[in-house]
């Protein structure tokens, strides 16, 4: 049931992408997202697709597994699409009853849908191929300069890694409590909205109690090992760039350049290629 939510999960396997330094993947994802939203020419998304497709292929994460994660947010995507489609003012294409579809609405909706799905696939690719610990290590290292202006970088990344670490545990716990209550005849699936919300109480109360208990245990265990925040802490496995990481940075640069190039090119080309955001 709940295990079907693959968004933000780690997929264990061995691949070049998995072995990349987390900083590369963080920077890469950031650049990828920027590229998605700066670009406003349709043909550029072909470049984006080719890039994303090759990274997915390299990552050895089965496509089916990734798309299953998308199912969870399909509703959001459709909602965004429909809103954009009907609520954007402009030149009317079709109109029936009180609804009207405009040219601008259609193009915004399509662009937004493409951007959002690529955004989700791209960023879930990062979490699928990077363990939470690696991810926060990378983040801490990247944000290190901010320490100079007294941002508690270490503490923030510690909090993040603990939060990420607990997601699968809490999912498992939810699954277990749900089953235990179902064994007592609880019904989470039928009924109207209010009944469904009420049915969640026997799930949420034990879940919160267990979350607090776990948090307490963890705090105690950290205290017992004399944990104290950032200054002067060393790492057991410090992050170090390898050759492949520099190669990856190079590829990223190339990708950004390609996006920019195709964007400028197709902006100046007439015809079907020049379909762009209103």
């Amino acid at each position: 049931m709940l295990r079907d939510i693959t968004l933000g999960q780690y997929y264990q396997t061995d691949s070049v992408i998995h072995r990349l330094d987390p900083r590369v993947k963080l920077v890469g994802t950031l650049l990828f997202i920027i590229s998605l939203f700066v670009v406003n020419q349709f043909p550029v998304y072909l470049v984006v697709l080719v890039f994303l497709g090759s990274v997915i292929a390299l990552s050895h994460v089965p496509l089916g597994f990734m798309l299953r994660g998308m199912k969870a947010i399909a509703f959001l995507l459709i909602l965004a699409f429909v809103c954009n489609l009907f609520l954007t003012p402009g030149d009317i294409l079709v109109s029936f009853w009180k609804l009207r579809i405009t040219k601008q609405g259609l193009s915004t909706a399509v662009f937004m849908a493409i951007r959002l799905s690529l955004l989700i696939v791209g960023s879930s690719l990062m979490t699928l191929t990077t363990t939470p610990n690696h991810l926060t290590d990378g983040l801490e290292k990247l944000l290190n300069p901010l320490k100079k202006i007294r941002v508690p970088v270490h503490e923030i990344s510690m909090m993040m890694s603990i939060a990420l670490r607990f997601i699968p545990i809490l999912l498992e716990e939810t699954d277990k409590i749900m089953k235990a209550q179902m064994a007592r005849g609880a019904d989470f699936d039928t009924g109207n909205l209010i009944q469904k919300a009420k049915a969640l109480i026997p799930l949420l109360v034990p879940l919160f109690i267990s979350a607090f208990r776990r948090a307490n245990d963890l705090a105690m265990a950290m205290e017992a090992r004399c944990y104290r925040g950032g200054d002067g802490r060393t790492k057991m496995k410090p992050l170090k760039y390898e050759k492949r990481d520099f190669a990856a940075y190079g590829l990223l640069l190339f990708y950004m350049a390609a996006c920019a190039g195709v964007n400028i090119l197709s902006a100046h080309l007439p015809g079907i290629l020049s379909w762009h955001l209103g």
């Binding site: 409590i177 089953k179 179902m182 064994a183 007592r184 005849g185 034990p206 267990s210």
Partner: peptide, 29 residues
Amino acid sequence: KKLRQKVGLVFQYPEHQLFEADVLSDVCF
């Protein structure tokens, strides 16, 4: 539902599923 009534399953660490304010209400669930 009938099956779950006939076959009662007590989970590992069943105390983790308690949620009501008092013992009697919890057992009434």
